[in-house]
Amino acid sequence: MINFRQAAAFLLIFLSGLGVGLLVAWVIAPVEYVDATPALLRSDYKDQYRLLVASAYAANGNLERARSRLSLLEDPDPVQVLTAQAQRSLAAGQPWESVRLLAALASALQNTSPVVSSPSPTLASLALPQEETPTVPPTPRPDSPSPAETPSPAFVTATQVPSLVIPPTPRPTRTPTATPGALFVLTRQDVICNPALPDGLLQITVLDAARKPVPGIEITITWSSGEERFFTGLKPDVGNGYADFIMAPDVIYTLRLAPGGTFVSDLAAPICPTEGGEIYLGGLRLEFQQP
């Protein structure tokens, strides 16, 4: 018969054993994680990954492949994440080229919708349970020749491979934008006299033909003693197609939108009167749209 003291001792010993077991399992010999997905990457590596996706997109122009790759990161809104990263890069003084690549990909994604007509599995959607290693039937890319057509000693079909083979991201067809390549034209230019806004605020909104904001549009502003370049969408909290700039008093600016080079000259901060008769520096609001 076990008395109370013995039961307490057994419990203590059991808990000691439990503690040792957990120490081994969590600290000394934790589960080795060697098959991670991109979604598990640390945030700085995710930034690096996105930049590489953007670079590869700039190199191959394959938007669906870029979209598939970005989906592996499981960002809730890839466009917004890309623009936010571009903004961070700009603020951190990283090379302009990186900012441009990120913004260009964000813009391309914003202007197209995913291809949904054909099954185009991403690597993630083809991921198999870790415990099993079945053979996955090959899913050749739409533009890839079938193995039967191109017998090549270096080309091993999945049916010949006994272990797990995950096909690469499918080669997609490009989805046309709503108004591909169309120039942006200035549709509105308003003087804004609002003392609540920063002095000399130049607000720029870029819309596509469907009046959807377009991020990643490069804007160059030049004046007699300088030049500044930035992109729409770097303030996603205000709008994906929004950008702004602070104008100095008595300076004439020229604005140019990179795609097509839409040009607006003689921009200057207006002088606005307050109700009390004083004056302050007002702002401008420009709206560009694709026809």
Partner: peptide, 25 residues
């Protein structure tokens, strides 16, 4: 106790890695 700890730590609630490096892809 040790067995229970190992089962819990390795199977039921293993260490979760959420900030891995590309080397572990």
């Amino acid at each position: 106790g040790v067995t229970a700890g190992l089962i819990y730590g390795w199977v039921i609630a293993p260490v979760q890695y959420t900030e891995t490096a590309p080397a572990s892809l």
